[in-house]
Nucleic acid binder design. Sequence first.
DNA 1: CGACCTCTCTACCGAGTGGTAGAGAACAAT
DNA 2: ATTGTTCTCTACCACTCGGTAGAGAGGTCG
Lengths: 234, 234
Amino acid sequence: MTERSKGADISQQILAHATRLFAARGFVGASLRDIAIAVGIRKPSLLYHFNSKDELRRGVLENMLSHWNEVVPRLLKAATSGPEQFEAVATETLQFFRSDPDRARLLLRELLDRPEEMRPLIEQHVQPWTKIICDYIRKGQQQGRVHADIDPEAYIVHMINLMVSGMALVDSIVALVPPESEERDAIAERYVVELLRVARAGLFVDPAAARQGIDPPDVFPPTPVRQSSGDPAE
Amino acid sequence: MTERSKGADISQQILAHATRLFAARGFVGASLRDIAIAVGIRKPSLLYHFNSKDELRRGVLENMLSHWNEVVPRLLKAATSGPEQFEAVATETLQFFRSDPDRARLLLRELLDRPEEMRPLIEQHVQPWTKIICDYIRKGQQQGRVHADIDPEAYIVHMINLMVSGMALVDSIVALVPPESEERDAIAERYVVELLRVARAGLFVDPAAARQGIDPPDVFPPTPVRQSSGDPAE
DNA sequence: CGACCTCTCTACCGAGTGGTAGAGAACAAT
DNA sequence: ATTGTTCTCTACCACTCGGTAGAGAGGTCG
């Protein structure tokens, strides 16, 4: 509200509406004029704050990544402590995209439009903590808590894909299931629950136990029947 | 080659290049001029075969759906007979998008750009056989072969999402895993294998047995046995 | 006051878009 | 030869795009 912050405030409004319109219509499909009108200004005024459309695109991307960087510490903390690691990391990540599906749509569109430009961003913002989770998975494999035949890197990629694409397409996707008088939010909730179930089932040997945060013994597995003696070296 | 089929041949070429460019750059990002040049003709010539850009878009979509309709019978046959139902349906569907990732990219873009227009197409071409698979899942739940806590509709949606988005983003997605001197195709193969593993693990109580098409006993309810004694798989 | 700064505006530009008009080439049927 | 069909072309249209020029409004500071 102060005079000093007025310019920054307008820039934030521009970023917000640009994010929404880029997510809805794509980068080429959303015109600077439409974005400016949505903010309540004219196109040249918008170009005063962002010198070009491409600069606005980078701003939108950076804006989303800055929000992402806010959740990363919680993610890392969850990934390295406590028995409920999986639940925390999965729900935090899912919540990030679910709270604003435009993030997922934007990310998906950029991955389709500019895969090579997105590569360094992915390597910088996602790869580091996926590596940590990979180590977590491998440790779980040694302990027999997670399936031995998991390909950790591929598994994580699929789970991220599931969350991002799932949240991005949540509006389109309800068409696959007959209405059945259920509300949109209820269906979305069903999908989230099932998504987490699939992720757990794909990871843990005993999903129910992992869900309760039960610590599996390091020496003996909790259940009588475990893997046969000759574990195939993987 | 014959004079009679010349026009149809050109139309097919237009559809092919339009599919490729729509998938790569999006509908608004791919111009009629570029598509025409790719075919080797001029823009008005293209507009002789397709009266408008939107008609071309519908043609591209119908063309893809016609290919999809070719695999549906095999899908239905696989879904209603034999013990290897899951493997057959999953690999057929996956192969459809994997053999031409442009199909997945195109579908993804259309779902993002025009969710409401895609709804009837989904209902017509996908919903029927997902219902069949849902029944198959519920029957498996009664028999104790598949997890009791599955939400069948949501599970199928997630698996389709995994296949479509996974194949659409296969090029971008390799950035998540460090190069490690592996070739692109090798990485893609790893992803496919892991995708099918996740799908099996999310579905079957005993994935290894299901993979071999082993009929689990109908008498015994879901047993606490997690994995069969032998794991000769792989 | 005048100089400066921040921000918005109208008017305009060249380039590219989807689409049209209409001429002509090639060929078939009469 | 004539007519008609199928197909491609050049030239052109109105429109939208991203971006620029430049004036002016409002405020701050000397």
